[in-house]
């Protein structure tokens, strides 16, 4: 019996038209799941928490899924608990999902909360799963500027997919239409915290100017490609946990992330 991988998908939003679409990273999660299934490493199931009527679900199914499960949820409900229940009921040993949703709060918190509640490690921004042997996966994480980090992690774990992962395959209309969309009724927990919030349209944040003073083409190339070397950065290795935390806290203050 193959271990189970669960791909969680959301409804995406096209950046130009604002229309619903297959979310880029969630599509990659399904693609990775399908690849794992085709390599006979894991068995894939796909789930969505939300509205079962969205035509986008058919687009995911059109990638070659015979079944897609929907945890029926309203827009104002908190999907975390039903998802935890579902992951546990499915006895999944790997959860794949996008880094953040393309609509709604888009906080990117869900994978972290899921991993925390499940007590599983979280692998952020996975580019590729190279192998799974005896319950240990060799995973390539995507780092900025095309760099990769190879980690080996024991199942189970939660992983988010980077855009560097394999692009989702084309969706086919026919199989998508014929796929079984299974609606699972779950307890609905209203997201009371979010209900208190006031939503305002996002404003583009000012970008930090990067002044390149390079004189030669080689310097400009280096400036454009090299990893920025933070002059003010500090490497804390042997300090105590308190000192490390203080350093982070000071940095956040300095960057005005917290006031």
């Amino acid at each position: 019996m193959l271990p189970k991988v669960l791909a969680l998908v959301s409804i995406g939003r096209h950046p130009q038209s604002g229309r619903e679409r297959r979310a880029e990273q969630d599509g990659r999660a399904v693609e990775m799941g399908l690849c794992l299934q085709e390599r006979q490493l894991m068995h894939l199931s796909v789930a969505h928490a939300g509205n079962a009527d969205s035509s986008v679900l058919r687009q995911y199914a059109g990638m070659g899924l015979s079944k897609l499960s929907v945890l029926a949820q309203q827009a104002n409900e908190d999907v975390l608990s039903p998802l935890i229940d579902y992951v546990e009921a499915q006895q999944a040993s790997m959860v794949l999902m996008g880094v953040r949703s393309e609509m709604g709060q888009s906080s990117g918190m869900l994978p972290y909360l899921l991993a925390e509640r499940l007590g599983w490690p979280l692998l952020p921004r996975v580019a590729e799963i190279q192998s799974i042997e005896e319950g240990v996966a060799q995973v390539l994480l995507a780092l900025p500027r095309g760099q990769r980090r190879l980690v080996s992690v024991a199942l189970p774990f939660v992983a988010t997919l980077d855009n560097a992962a394999k692009a989702p395959r084309q969706t086919a209309f026919g199989p998508g239409q014929r796929a079984d969309i299974e609606v699972i009724n779950t307890t609905s927990i209203a997201d009371e915290v979010a209900a208190q919030w006031q939503f305002t349209p996002a404003k583009p944040r000012p970008k930090r100017m990067k002044v390149v003073k390079a004189k030669t083409a080689a310097d400009r190339f280096k400036a454009a490609t090299a990893k920025p070397v933070g002059g003010g950065g500090k490497v804390l290795k042997n300090e105590t946990v308190e000192e490390k935390a203080q350093a982070i806290f000071d940095f956040l203050l300095e960057e005005k992330v917290i006031r």
Binding site: Q170, F173, G174, P175
Partner: peptide, 11 residues
């Protein structure tokens, strides 16, 4: 296209 989802290149 509709059944195999196999339109080549930029399709």
């Amino acid at each position: 296209t509709l059944e195999k989802g196999d339109t080549p290149n930029k399709g």
